[in-house]
Design a protein around this nucleic acid. Structure first.
Lengths: 118, 118
DNA sequence: ACGCTCCATCGAAGAATGTCTATATTGACG
DNA sequence: CGTCAATATAGACATTCTTCGATGGAGCGT
């Protein structure tokens, strides 16, 4: 960010199309973080997973709850669950042989807040 | 969708881990539409484009406004702009030689509403 | 009319992603 | 302790995505 001030942006001739900025733009680093969040939501299977989990009683479901309605192989379901976990939308709690994935409270709502930074 | 009712899901033995659903889940078709929206936001370059456009005075910028800060080739910038247009975040208005891309008012806010359907 | 600038489209190369099968790991239960 | 069930991980393959250079079209200027 300090680099910006070093540039002599006092160009008078290029006034043709380029208009000045009214406020700061997002940094490239922050943009990557925002994109990572949305990329996790950018797959129909993962959207359905979140919907199924959210539709369960305690907003919690195990892998076997998901495999059948999604009609996907078990490793594929686990793969998507990991992505949703890494993105902060789900948590995993293992009870016995089963792994229960639960919605992180407020994680979906906070997506709206992420957009405010753009 | 009507296929679901045909399945005899009255399985009594599998009560071990699977819990019942408290509400309806999203349909596969709707999930694809939701995912398409988020996929458009799932790339750091496109997030930066939206930020730059939103930071301009009238929330409007031409391609030349974007090419330099993004440090990408012009065809690549146009490619991303098309994706953001198809997703409903930007509109294009050509004035003279220049093409001005403007934020669709409320399009970013409505993303939060999309999540409510999940 | 000619050239020049700005932008969109085309085609291709490399990277990333979604899916599967096969295998490993973990915990429960005889 | 051995077996079985539920998940996770690894590797492979096809598809999609991001990016580029090259080309084409539209509009302004001399």
């Amino acid at each position: 960010m300090p680099v910006a001030e070093l540039l002599p942006v006092t160009d008078v001739s290029a006034a043709a199309c380029c208009s000045p900025l009214a406020k700061e733009t997002i940094t490239a680093t922050d943009a990557e973080a925002v994109a990572r969040t949305f990329k996790a939501l950018g797959d129909p299977t993962r959207v359905r997973i979140l919907s199924i989990v959210a539709s369960h009683a305690d907003q919690e479901a195990c892998v076997c709850d998901l495999q059948e309605p999604l009609e996907l192989s078990q490793p594929t379901v686990s793969h998507h669950l990991k992505i949703l976990m890494d993105a902060g939308f789900l948590t995993r709690s293992k009870r016995g042989t089963w792994a229960y994935y639960a919605l992180v409270p407020g994680s979906l709502d906070s997506v709206a807040g992420v957009l405010a930074t753009v």
